[in-house]
Structure formats: C-alpha cells, structure tokens
Simulated scan of single mutants.
Amino acid sequence: MEFFASAIETLKVLVIALGAGLGVWGVINLLEGYGNDNPGANAHVP
C-alpha cells in the first residue's frame, strides 16, 4: 500500500508542476499579445 501512496504523491507533484508551467506559459502569451514591439508585423499588405 505504501507504493500506491508514494505513486499518488509523485503524481500530485507532477500535476502541480505541469499546471504551474502551463499557467506561466499562458501569462507570457497574454503579455506578448499586449506587446507592440513590431508594428510592421501587423501591416497585412496584399
């Protein structure tokens, strides 16, 4: 039974780490969306 408890604890840590990583990635994507570093990238000239 100890093995299962250890496996569950490991899975909890992995899920929390994955969620934190996705959260950071999402925040970075949001901040990049507000950036206006390259206005030329928005010039859609046919």
Rank of each mutant, 00 (worst) to 15 (best):
L31E: 06
T10K: 14
W25P: 00
V24D: 01
G40E: 14
A5Y: 02
E9R: 15
N36C: 00
N29K: 15
G40K: 02
E2I: 09
F3S: 10
S6F: 09
T10E: 15
V27D: 00
G35M: 08
V27G: 01
F3T: 08
G26L: 09
I16C: 00
N42I: 01
A17L: 12
G40F: 03
F4S: 05
L14T: 05
E9W: 03
A17Q: 14
G23I: 07
L18S: 10
I16M: 09
A7M: 14
N36M: 05
P39I: 04
Y34K: 12
A5G: 02
L30D: 03
V45S: 04
D37E: 09
L11P: 00
A5W: 02
G19R: 06
G21V: 04
I28L: 08
L31Q: 07
D37H: 06
S6T: 13
I28T: 03
N38T: 05
A43N: 11
P46F: 09
G40H: 05
A41S: 11
E9G: 06
P39Y: 04
G26E: 04
G23K: 00
P46T: 05
G19N: 06
E2K: 07
N36W: 05
G40Y: 05
L11D: 10
E9D: 15
D37S: 11
A43Q: 07
I16W: 07
K12I: 04
P39S: 03
F3P: 00
H44P: 01
A17N: 14
A41W: 02
L14A: 09
I16E: 14
N29M: 11
T10C: 03
F3D: 14
M1Q: 04
P39W: 02
A17F: 04
A7S: 07
L22I: 11
V45I: 13
P46H: 08
F4Y: 10
H44A: 08
L18R: 11
L14D: 13
H44R: 07
A17W: 03
W25T: 11
W25I: 10
F4R: 10
I16K: 15
Y34W: 13
N38A: 10
I28S: 02
E2A: 11
D37T: 11
V15M: 09
G40W: 05
G35N: 05
A17E: 13
A20T: 15
S6D: 15
G33S: 15
G33V: 01
A17G: 03
L11F: 11
V24M: 09
A20Y: 06
G23M: 13
V15E: 08
N42W: 01
L11T: 12
H44W: 05
P46C: 00
P46I: 02
V24Q: 00
L11S: 12
F3M: 11
L30Q: 07
I16D: 15
L22E: 06
A20M: 10
V24L: 15
L22W: 03
V15W: 04
L22Y: 07
L14Y: 08
I16N: 07
M1G: 14
G33P: 00
A43W: 04
V15T: 12
K12R: 11
G33R: 10
A7H: 02
Y34N: 01
E32F: 09
A17Y: 04
L31S: 04
W25R: 10
V45N: 06
G19V: 09
D37C: 00
